[in-house]
Simulated scan of single mutants.
Amino acid sequence: MRATKAAGRSVVWATDDPMHGNTLKASTGYKTRPFDRILSEVKTLHRGGRGRGSPPRR
């Protein structure tokens, strides 16, 4: 983000499905992901972007 901003570029930062990857296998055999992990990733993304002058938007 810093290098892109320093280069004077304007880009769109996009994220993929938060459930993609990093899953756990439940006893039922289904892939799952604890909500607290998803929420933590979203909060980290927002803090990181905001701190670099590029806050995530929807």
Rank of each mutant, 00 (worst) to 15 (best):
T28L: 01
L39G: 08
A3H: 07
R50I: 08
M19E: 00
P18D: 09
G53T: 13
A6Y: 01
S27K: 15
A6K: 01
G29Y: 03
R37L: 11
I38D: 02
R47A: 14
G53Y: 06
T28K: 12
S10M: 04
R50V: 11
D17I: 08
E41P: 04
K43V: 06
G29T: 01
H46S: 07
A7G: 02
T28D: 14
R57A: 15
K5N: 12
P34K: 04
A6N: 03
A7H: 04
W13Q: 05
N22Y: 07
D36E: 13
F35Q: 15
P18G: 12
R50L: 15
K25N: 07
L45T: 08
K25I: 00
T32P: 09
G51D: 13
L45I: 13
V42P: 00
R57I: 15
K25C: 03
G51W: 10
H46W: 09
W13D: 01
T28E: 09
M19Q: 10
G48K: 10
Y30P: 03
L45R: 04
G51C: 10
S27M: 05
K43A: 11
K25Y: 00
D36Y: 14
L24E: 11
T44Q: 07
G8L: 10
R37G: 09
R58V: 13
R58D: 13
S54I: 13
E41G: 05
V12C: 07
R58P: 12
S27C: 10
L39T: 12
E41A: 05
H20S: 05
R37M: 08
R52E: 09
D16P: 00
N22P: 02
G51S: 14
V42Q: 02
A6Q: 01
L24A: 04
T44L: 15
R58G: 09
T4N: 05
P34D: 11
E41D: 07
S54Q: 12
A14F: 00
R58W: 11
D16Q: 04
G49M: 13
D16G: 01
R37S: 05
A26F: 10
R52W: 02
R2F: 05
T44E: 04
T23Q: 13
K5Y: 09
G21Y: 04
